[in-house]
Design a protein around this nucleic acid. Structure first.
Lengths: 161, 161
DNA sequence: CAAATATATGTAGTTAACTACACATATTGC
DNA sequence: GCAATATGTGTAGTTAACTACATATATTTG
């Protein structure tokens, strides 16, 4: 199958390919929410969904959970606060911490979004359920990288050059 | 295998996941070039490699080839010109066109990079050759999306809600 | 218990892609 | 052969993540 032969340039440009695909999917995601008349940006999803599940979290634990650097989370939280979808309060025990949670408006939005998620999940499953499942591939690659980084692996080959 | 169960939030956050993986790989890529003492940024790869193979191209055809919007290519070309890795000249037939090519310095750099590519290709193959091959998955998803976009697929499910 | 270290949050500035718009030159069609 | 349209390049501004640094509060340790 010619289709499945991966050339060297593909492997070399893998980060570029991933980014492009990410952009493409994000743009369509936005359009889907729009089509449902929901004012929601795909980039908000990880934060809001995590708060939906866990109800209250500090900024850093939230960042860790979604895998973002904390300044990225802070800037998302700012946006979400402006939209009145989340609010925050000081942790009384550890006053360094800021505890974040959904507002009523946030909870309402999330629940109106559930039918949209159904659609997105189905469409995403449809496009990723090819011979090599993209989500599974991402999970596997992330697990592999956790064992031993890309750089460490490269170093092994460097020695043998 | 618990490991392979994809939850809904994974599918919903797919663009986020792709982007994060892309960032991670790009950063390590940069470190590999550094470890070889080569002054090279991974983002330059698609442009330089394409010029290496095709020798001379206009800005838009180059952009199409690498799958970038043309302003992105222009800003990369500016950087590469400053590095004296590429140069450009007017097309004598169609004077709107600017033809871009590698300089001698560019060609030299690319040839010193070949052993590094070997290493990157091997390390990338190592991390992507899991049960679901990431590169193949990307190729398959891109092909699937070309047939029918994410949005169009979602619309089918929207009607049935 | 005070000094050193660690953790939590926040700000500023960077990056690498993008879209929207502007303008010049080619091509097409009446 | 000129007007309308299409194509090629360029600029300006946006976006969504990042790193580096700053500061405040907690925790650990000698």
């Amino acid at each position: 199958m010619e289709q499945n032969v991966i050339d060297a340039s593909g492997l070399l440009a893998i980060s570029t390919r991933l980014q492009r695909l990410s952009d493409q999917i994000r743009k369509d995601g936005l359009l889907i929410y729009k089509a449902f008349g929901i004012d929601f940006q795909p980039k908000w999803f990880p934060v809001l969904y995590t708060l939906y599940k866990k109800s209250t979290m500090s900024v850093v634990s939230l960042s860790d959970e979604i895998g973002y650097a904390h300044p990225s989370t802070i800037s998302l939280l700012k946006e979400l606060e402006k939209e009145k979808l989340i609010r925050s309060k000081k942790d009384k025990i550890d006053t360094r911490k800021r505890l974040v949670e959904l507002t009523e408006k946030g909870k309402t939005l999330l629940s109106t979004m559930e039918p949209v998620w159904e659609v997105i999940i189905k469409a995403t499953a449809e496009i990723t359920n090819t011979e090599n499942n993209l989500m599974k591939a991402i999970n596997e690659v992330e697990a592999t990288l956790q064992e031993k980084s890309f750089l460490q692996r490269a170093k092994v080959y460097m020695k043998n050059e």
